[in-house]
Design a protein around this nucleic acid. Sequence first.
RNA 1: GGGCGGUUAGCUCAGUUGGUAGAGCGUCUGCCUUACACGCAGAAUGUCGGGAGUUCGAGCCUCUCACCGCCCACCA
Length: 867
Amino acid sequence: MDTRYDPKTVEQRWYDTWDQRGYFKPRESLTGKTFTISMPPPNITGDLHMGHAMYTLQDVLIRWHRMLGDTALWVPGTDHAAIATQNVLEKQLAKKGSSKEAIGREAWDRMVQEWYDTTGHTILQQMRRLGFSADWSRIRFTMDPTYVEAIRYVFVQLWKEGLIYRGPRIVNWCPRDQSAISDLEVQYEEEDGHLYYLDYPVEGGGVISVATARPETMVGDTAVAVHPDDWRYKDLIGKSVVLPIVHRRVPIVADEAVDQEFGTGAVKVTPGHDTTDYEIGERHHLPILSILSLDGRMNIPEVPQLHGLKVPEARDRIVEMLRAEGALQKIEPYRHSVGHCDRCGAVIEPIVSAQWWVRMKPLAGPAIAVAENDDLRFHPERWREQYLRWMRNIRDWNISRQLWLGHRIPVWTCANGHAVAYLKDPKECEQCGNRELTQDPDVLDTWFSSSLWPFVTLGWPADTDDLRRYYPTQVLDTARDILYLWVARMVFMSLHFLNTVPFSDVLIHGTVLAPDGRRMSKSLGTGVDPLDMIEQYGADATRAWTAYFGTGGQDIRFSEEKIESYRRFANKLWNATRLLVGKLPEGAAPIPIDESALEPADLWILGRLSAVTRSVTASFERMEFGPAIDGLFDFAWKEVADDYLELIKPRLQAGDASTVTALSVAIHVLETILRLLHPIMPFVTEELWQRLPHEGETIMYAPWPLPDETIEDRELMDDMAHLLDVVRAVRNVRQSSDTKSRQQPAEATSQRALLSEPVGRRYLATLAQLELNGKLPEGMPQSVVVVGQTTVRLGLPADGAPDAQRLKGELEKKLREIELIQEKLNNPEFTSRAPAAVVERERARLAQAQKAADRLRGLLGETGKLG
RNA sequence: GGGCGGUUAGCUCAGUUGGUAGAGCGUCUGCCUUACACGCAGAAUGUCGGGAGUUCGAGCCUCUCACCGCCCACCA
């Protein structure tokens, strides 16, 4: 073995081997249980980013359950991502000076198909670099023919049930994509703007002032609204105003939606271009005027000066016109939030348009119930409230998009006006037999198809074996930003069509931020490519990083140092293995542990191993991997490598029965650590596991370790901890004085069981590099170390520095400690109210401290010996 | 406007039921000790955001204020 671990070759080799041997496919269950995760399908056009690296958490769970003996299945696939893909292809066409309109729908569809075929599943290929053990033979794509059929089935079914309807409503319109988008796809951002105060002349005299951030929409006003209780305007309600510029007469209405405090307390009402106004309009049966065409330009032939202008230009122009008419009272700076398209960033225009909607109230009911009764659980738990809040206030879902890419809405209208949803492309109208049919031009919201993902990927609506065996799934892991867009929708769709939750546990992992706390973004240059991290530090280190930070529920500032530390950790494990493998013949079988031959150190490390196994397993069960990787890192590095392996080195050299025992224990401990670590760091653990004596053909199928509580000896743990404290204290003194020769003569006395025995003294001698044979020669200058019930006298070289000063300092520290404890114990409130165990512990601490103080005093008395 | 999360060592973050504050990185010192210098050993470093309260005892519970971030809402 080389002195360094090189992840590159190892990772590639093992991934190919696992894949070829079919280890990622579900295998027969040893527990009778299945464990399934549906992988959130990345966009087919997307690049791998740190968000995808977070899918490591899913792989950790899958690998863990595989080791537990469950039939584990991770279903991968990709999403067609309508808007995103369309943007890519339109740019390609634009480069050639063409457009989708120019080539026509058929050619466009061919182009899309070709793109899908050539893009393939590149992003899933990249995921392999991270070691993901998904069953790649089951890759699904939301454009697969069977998937398309399933979507169609769902649409027709919902339509028949009256849960899908078409109707004009005010919608969020993206002028660039020329499509409606749902409320969830609008991103609001604070922007500096102006608040314009307009004077509208009231019929019969006087003016009423309204405040608006969008003066250009005044040409579409169909009313002015005031609050019904507003005394200022009481008399004006029911009267009319004449709009400047267009000279249209519109009523003054009273509506509760008006905020008396804001602006002038009177508001212009533009039902065609404002959500609130639209609702006011509904209540007062106001006409709706559309003043924008679908590309976001003004569309008002009556006012030629404005016609065809973009909104910002129209705004400037109309302000001039208003000023000219004396209708502009004032302009104030005003900061407000403006909606932008999630995908392309264009400013969203509310417009009235006929769209397809899903009636949400009936679907939300069951989805609320499952979260309330815990059939659906959230990790961290606080997301449950977020989910419920949204579900309880849900509004109908706009599922139609005016795009050229996506699943067409399967509704055909005949010449007689019969609109019907068809499972198969119809030849004639179902209702009248008319053969002149036209299909609705709209496509479905991408999230409509995504909402069916976990069950359609298993074959639904067909009654498949997969569906029966693997559905519902267990865990859904994702980022919080698609909790509503995706997670919530899967829940109500599954409940409606399969009468079950799609998964029992929702794991919301943290979002990776740039080191400065901003969002990671390619355009800002703050993005981090996981493939770069894999290249530099290995997939295992990258995975360990995501496992460490991913499940705490906190957002994560990217920190490369931590990944680096896990790379070193892999190297540490490699070298620990190297040490042990070097003592073994090639291809050695596992050495059975002879329990009768175990030394205290062996019992100690086995006890610690058991405790670590228990806590790691508990962390996994809570789906909190941070404490798991942290605990394993610490145990493997500090306790096993730094302490235990150092402790047994003399035995490993001895070449007798003690060598065999030490090796058997060390190998067992290391092999167990590898198994505990495997779900998080699969590559290095497989590589090292194969090099150590082992049973089985892959660590992927090795059993998950169980704790052995019978071996956890409390007193021994305490004694070992004490011994290590003594070691540190001796090393400290040796470093600060000149007592650095390799084997320092010393004598030790202790009231601790372990340190009173030769074996304990041997450990102390090994770790602190002491010559502990018998007594120090009479009169030899010495340095004394006192730790609790143990005293070590170090023989000093003639020029050694005296340490009375240090002992004095320690005595003072002890006295302060004694004082503090006594104060506590002298408080009758404490002794009477605190639990007996706590009081007892304080008493014991006091006794210990007093003994140590006595010993220090005694030593300080031996001034002669202390130089 | 409502809600949620955060504020702990120079930096990035842990801290399970309230009972003597931790890690990684960085810093300082000494070591090429035959698994690892991608290492070993030792050391330093915290009014746990401010204030008040509950309690024998608060990083942890309650209230309040400040700042940072996110989500939701019909923010003219």
